[in-house]
Computed example of a mutant assay.
Amino acid sequence: MSAENLILNGDFSQGETHWRIYLPPGTGASAEIRDGYCQVQNDASVDQSVLLEVGKYRLAFEGLFPDTTGSYVNLALELSGYRQQIAVRGGDDYSPYALSFTVTDVDSNGKDIFTLGLVGKLTGGKYRNVTLSLAANN
């Protein structure tokens, strides 16, 4: 049995639903979500925020970036103060990425705000199969 994916529409099958797209003015940035992937380039970003409880979580995704562009995935936990960037590698096929992190601080409702940003630099590339699951309760 697989763990519940806490990222809504992490397979991008519902287009832009649950995702926010940011295109900085004057940069030529573009973002497209279709056919099970999100393509970003020229400083475009696509993000989503999720409320998480105390516990250990695992984020996983795949990236296809033909060139080494400086593109990355940005993670942030507002109350726990956690910040992390995962640089994506260039290559001819999708590469898997995974990272575990722990939520330690929550508000009076028992939640912390987790924000995930998929960022494309220069020629950019594609993200797909974005999952976030609870690995263990504390």
Score class of each variant (00 low, 15 high):
S108V: 09
R128K: 13
K121V: 04
F101A: 07
V130H: 04
F12W: 01
V54Q: 13
D112V: 08
G125S: 04
V50H: 05
Q85D: 14
Q14V: 00
V88R: 04
A136R: 02
A44H: 08
E78D: 15
G117M: 06
Y82V: 09
D92P: 12
A60K: 06
G55W: 01
F114H: 08
L77T: 02
S108H: 09
Q39T: 07
V46R: 02
V88K: 07
I33H: 12
D112W: 04
S133Q: 12
N138Y: 01
T123M: 04
L52K: 01
L116I: 10
L51D: 14
I21S: 03
S71F: 07
L134H: 08
R89M: 15
T69Y: 04
E16Q: 09
P96W: 00
K126I: 00
D43V: 02
A135G: 01
P66Y: 02
T123P: 05
A136F: 10
Y94E: 07
F65D: 09
S30C: 03
A60S: 14
L59D: 07
I21G: 10
I86E: 01
D67Y: 13
A76N: 10
K111D: 04
M1E: 08
L99H: 15
N129K: 08
V119P: 00
A31R: 02
A76Y: 02
L116C: 08
L64V: 00
L116T: 01
V88W: 08
P25M: 07
D112I: 05
H18R: 05
R128C: 06
E78M: 12
V106E: 06
G28P: 04
P24W: 04
L64F: 08
R128P: 05
N137M: 11
E62G: 03
K121M: 09
G26V: 05
L79N: 15
N74C: 03
T102C: 08
L134R: 12
A29H: 08
D93I: 09
T131R: 14
F65S: 13
V50R: 09
T17S: 12
A135L: 14
S2W: 02
T17K: 15
S2C: 01
L59V: 12
K111W: 05
F61C: 12
V88F: 14
S2H: 05
L23Y: 05
A76C: 09
D43Y: 10
N9T: 05
P66A: 04
N74K: 15
M1W: 02
A29Y: 12
G10Y: 03
A135V: 14
L99E: 10
S49F: 03
Q39N: 11
Y82F: 15
V40S: 08
T123R: 06
